[in-house]
Design a protein around this nucleic acid. Sequence first.
DNA 1: CTGATAATATATACTTTCTATATATACAAA
DNA 2: TTTGTATATATAGAAAGTATATATTATCAG
Lengths: 191, 191
Amino acid sequence: MIKYAILGLLHYKNMHGYRIKKHIEQNFGHMWSINYGQIYPNLKKLEQDGLIRMTQILQNDEKGPPRKLYSITEKGKKDFAAWLHASPEKSMLLRDPFLMRFVFFGFGDPERALELIDEQIALYEQQMERRRRNLKKWKKSGGYVRLMGELGVSLNEMFLQWLNRARSEILKDKTGETSHPSGTQKRSIAR
Amino acid sequence: MIKYAILGLLHYKNMHGYRIKKHIEQNFGHMWSINYGQIYPNLKKLEQDGLIRMTQILQNDEKGPPRKLYSITEKGKKDFAAWLHASPEKSMLLRDPFLMRFVFFGFGDPERALELIDEQIALYEQQMERRRRNLKKWKKSGGYVRLMGELGVSLNEMFLQWLNRARSEILKDKTGETSHPSGTQKRSIAR
DNA sequence: CTGATAATATATACTTTCTATATATACAAA
DNA sequence: TTTGTATATATAGAAAGTATATATTATCAG
């Protein structure tokens, strides 16, 4: 999929790897983060396959080594268009080391569970501000990119609400019935 | 992270690979889907590291080849507990081939974009039913697992709302100003 | 002016995750 | 008897993600 993120960005303008990473993080980087170790091998492969081409090496006028500017080829545009109009094969994938812990909190210390929830709340409140700021920038720009930004804000809001609800439920359970903590899992998995 | 999903599940009871996959999908499989190609190599590695142990080979009373039952060791429990109480290193990752297309819909055919959105709406309405059904089962079970199920439902609801909003906005844009489609991206990426 | 630090940029080795496919067992149906 | 289907394990290979090395230049401290 990184392949198509790169091909898509090169529709806007010619870019070098470093810039591509910045754009990926700023545009659909709400829930995405990418690495140089993913960018450069992909650029190499795409060039080998003739989907992109290195057009020029720019001497960096600020600092650092020269930039390798890539542009998309006709073949690349065709490949991208075919992908864009195809029905997505796979569905949404959400992976979160916090949520992975959450389902198992019943095996751990409820105090620590609450601490970790508070960490998450703080983290996503911070992120919320950043996302709202970015949204203002996108208000002017193309519809799809703006809508994507709005999804990021909605997701963040929903998650914060859920975290707060979880927090108060666990707190209630802990103080209310210390002898029968419903959070203590034994064989409570659905079959 | 799959490592800890396996170690976590083995806290409930001894299991074989096939059963572990089913449980992963049914418990936190809202946004997760796992493959045998991820299960068996992990079981192998965990056994080598002494975190789990193959306790018995059960002759399958239904059909198919014998099952290899694994149990968690003391070392495994210690490793799991340390992970459970640690602050998560990385943050939420959302990867979705539909959303990846969505940000680039401006480079494609708006008609097709609407079709793909409708596909997603149909898909998530189906999923919504399944999730609500599962939620009823979890009402009885442990707090954390149930809360996790509720997150799945909230996420699904929010996403469906967003899809419908996106749908009507794109439709409005298309019929309203055919000469100035705001969906047509040129250089509308945030810097 | 020399050396340390920081920002820009590319590159590669390695690990984990994911996909695809092969193999074995047994029951049921055609 | 072959074909299909459900159960179960296993492995090869591709894609994604992490960690780290290297090069270039500006800036600032000593």
